[in-house]
Amino acid sequence: MRIDRIRLVVQALFFIFLIYGGILGFSIGNAVPTMACIYAEDRGGSCFLYPFQRFMSLPWSTLLAATIVPFLIYLGTFFLWGVVFGKAFCGWICPLGFLQDLLTKARHLLGIDGARFRWASRERFQWVKYALLALLILIPMGIGSSLAGLPKLSGDWAVPFCQICPGKPLLPLFSGDISHLIIDFSSPVKLAMSGLLMGLTGLFLVGGFVKRRWFCLYCPMAALLSLFDRIGLIGLKKKGDTCTRCGNCYRACPMEIREIADIRDRKHMVTQDCMLCMRCIEVCPENKALSATFLGFPVFTASADGFLKRHGGQPPLTQEDLPHDTDSNGS
């Protein structure tokens, strides 16, 4: 069975668990490093970012005194999740990622070609997720305490990322809640935020249809999980001397990570955008060129036999086999 099909099944199961798990009383807490929206009422677990922003909006005197223990427990829980699963949350668990993958599947079914970013464009916007991460820390901090002598921000700025995250209106829809598809007229800040949210949700849906996992390039959770790229228990290793730079891995990668094909002198290949989907290993025709590891032990390794078996004895993918690439000029 192909790994992307297994992944889709696992994603669907986690999606059901994270959106409806609460109906049966299951919950894995609210420090889960994935975009499981806290606004979904029957959730079985929710995103780390919402309580994190709430904690950051407390005054320093409260955060570092009365709430320091819960805050540390909360960060510790997030750290444990991050170390054990790391970027696998993005590829295998994230409900927003699953929605994007479904949109891609729908596009394939309709026979519409996808698009890719230019390498230059992709590199140019790498900073966006880090900027969003910085803002979702700084803005809440400005609510509870004065930053650099500036006046405190109003409560309307609370949980700023959640106010513009497409998961907020989309994920509660699956439990029949359409109350987040709104424009909030209560204040200029709320008006701007809710307008931006609706705009980004529209972009998310159209962008997800046109391009694979486009939103993940700007996701601040991916930026946070990058902290665990090196220390995470799940790894992606490359053996440079067996790699022939055929480019199959790059072409198959949903995140279009060029380094996976280009770099031969690095062992750790979990880059800032990698979501550990393991599609690169699946399409690699070289023995042990790429392998996924858990605690350093290989659990899934590329092999010529496996490649031929998975692809029915067909030769490796070529540029002609891929959907028409409308936006890549290779520059």
Binding site: I182, I183, L203
Partner: peptide, 19 residues
Amino acid sequence: WESRSAGIYVLVLVMAAVG
């Protein structure tokens, strides 16, 4: 202070424009 219809209009408009 909330308008659901305005929200859905904006969403559909953005999707149509971007699409």
